[in-house]
Design a protein around this nucleic acid. Structure first.
Lengths: 353, 353
DNA sequence: CTTGATCATGATATCGATATCAGATATTGT
DNA sequence: ACAATATCTGATATCGATATCATGATCAAG
């Protein structure tokens, strides 16, 4: 058993103890940690050694009091609490917020009317910025109400950010294109497509990416094989039935999100269609369900947790910028990298009889 | 447009401004907020009014520096990152941690060997307490390593907490019993059961709850209708096939968790079995998938987010207690309330032909 | 070798809240 | 009405870190 902490109950090591141990002032330690200001190599090394020796970890709470990130309040306004991405957004967001010592207020809302009251509740609470996850990220009225109050807004995972709002997102077009290329390279020529909820911006953009992918492979668009969905499992079920219940069914189906892909897969299972030997299926988003179901889904991974983090960091930056300059600058747009997750639900196109 | 903040860029209202506005000292304001110490009614009212007038929200970062919650480091050691409950645990945990100004270290590990190194990394980092989500919550070696170092451990969502560890959990037995009663009340007499991974403690306890439920309804246990699963979707698929591919298939299936229930449902869809008219299915945990799939799953809701919060709060309490008394006291055990989510996947037993 | 500029370091004030203790006020008993 | 408590309230120190400014060290150029 190794001895930890000699005699104190108080456990945590402070910057001052590190400073004493290294024979420098606490400011030097602070500078070493924060890397912004140069510190002579000799001292830096000594400090780093002391930090290791004492297992020093900075106290973020204390840090944020002085550094001005503290006292910032960020609202997150969401409308679809069950959506699985919300958890992950929150996860990244809260982690980042706790790192920055920033406070986060959650506000839930439903219809347009309740959006109004939710927004005014946030304004009352004095939030300095608001993050809008989908589908609210595309709600012009909400954005307007907020910007009219002079509150910076950040849209998360929208496909087409409204003017004036900052955004953290992936390129839905490129994602859909990559996925479509993946299918065409596997030799698929009859590819079904399930659209998402028409009121969400990614719906159209993903469809456009799909079209581009067909075009690149010199494949015609088969109108019959494009069906409307709503981003829900149930709509995937129905769309799947429509697509698979026909003589000349597609050899691959591109569902605009994972939930619908899971629905299609359930239908396929039900019809005894083997995946991926007889049918390839792919989704979009890489939500938990994608790796839960069997076979695991080929899909486009959105780095949601990282996006949540980035969202907080970005809006904090905007807020500080606004405080300094006294006016709202240009919105910041950030495009994150997506990843094509090539898993087990897609394979070479079956030979035609 | 209403004016927020007269002229300052600095936005956030401090306790001192409230104090000035109310004509009292900041300590009085602090006391009103924290309610621990009585404040004369007259002042309290004035203070509360000022708080409202100024939209004051306490700065948690600042609070935690002085109050001693700060500087506490809590490790969360997890081994199964994809599990959907993990997100939610983290969600609750991080929220609470940020409220308390407590720092959280995440450590991931796989097999037993990597558990050792993960634990020592946490110890090196000087964590004051460790939270173990499932399935690590039942790992005796991990718990031993930690307690030997004098570090309090809290097991989250275990069915049978090891001695010496604190725990936040629901009563898996009662949950399974409630679910079974629900099925028997609906008239089901042939009920299939899918067990979970034998190495997880809830597996057995839920099974026992099921047995008790049968017993209460004077139903015999039908051995053929109990099949082994592994808590995964895929194992649910296989178990579902076994249970439904027989002449005298059950009229209801109790899967030990939601993922397996989803698998069963996929099989049922595939066989053209209508749910819930011809077959009732229920799961356990109320993970996101339960409300994603169609029809939505009847299941037992574990208040995971709240449990994550409570876990942080509880272990912080333990840590402070240990710091004060200088020794590890008795473990704290907390039983949360579960909720039976009666949704669409269960219905009255079909008439026998 | 000195001067002036540049760079690194440290002393001190500060962030926003709470702990602590002393002083002020109200309450009680006689 | 007065002393003795019991209750409130406020002044000040403090938490752990960083911002700021002043000072000491270092270096290039003359």
């Amino acid at each position: 058993m190794k001895q930890r902490r000699e005699s104190d109950n108080t456990s945590s090591v402070t910057i001052h103890e590190v400073a004493k141990h290294a024979g420098v002032s606490s400011m030097t330690v602070s500078r070493v940690i924060n890397k912004n200001v140069p510190v002579r190599e000799k001292l830096r090394t000594k400090v780093l050694e002391s930090i290791k020796a004492l297992n020093y970890i900075p106290n973020i709470a204390a840090r944020s009091t002085r550094s001005g990130d503290s006292g910032i309040r960020i609202g997150i306004l969401y409308s679809h609490p069950s959506a699985s991405y919300l958890n992950e957004i929150m996860l990244g967001g809260l982690e980042q917020a706790s790192k920055l010592g920033t406070q986060v207020l959650l506000e839930k809302c439903g219809g347009l009317q309740s959006q109004k009251t939710a927004v005014s509740r946030l304004v009352e609470a004095g939030v300095d910025g608001v993050i809008l996850p989908p589908p609210l990220c595309d709600s012009a009225p909400t954005v307007q109400m907020l910007t009219r109050e002079g509150i910076p807004v950040l849209a998360l995972a929208t496909a087409r950010p409204l003017p004036m709002v900052s955004a953290v997102r992936i390129d839905d077009f490129e994602g859909a294109l990559a996925l479509t290329r993946h299918l065409t390279k596997l030799g698929h020529k009859r590819i079904g497509f399930i659209k998402g909820d028409p009121s969400h911006t990614p719906t159209e953009v993903r469809y456009e990416g799909f079209l581009q992918g067909l075009d690149e492979a010199d494949l015609p668009l088969l109108d019959d094989l494009v069906v409307q969905g709503m981003f829900t499992y149930k709509s995937g079920l129905e769309a799947g039935r429509k697509l698979l219940d026909r003589e000349d069914r597609p050899t691959a189906i591109f569902a605009s999100n994972d939930d619908m892909a899971a629905g299609v897969m359930a239908v396929a299972h039900g019809m005894g269609i083997h995946i991926p030997e007889q049918l390839s299926i792919c989704g979009f988003d890489d939500t938990p369900v994608a790796s839960t179901i069997w076979p695991q889904l080929t899909t486009v991974h959105q780095p949601i947790v990282a996006m949540g983090k980035s969202a907080i960091a970005t809006i904090v930056e905007k807020i500080k910028e606004a405080r300094t300059s006294g006016q709202m600058g240009k919105p910041k747009r950030q495009l994150m990298k997506f990843t094509l997750m090539d898993r087990e639900s897609t394979g070479p196109a079956p030979h035609r009889d």
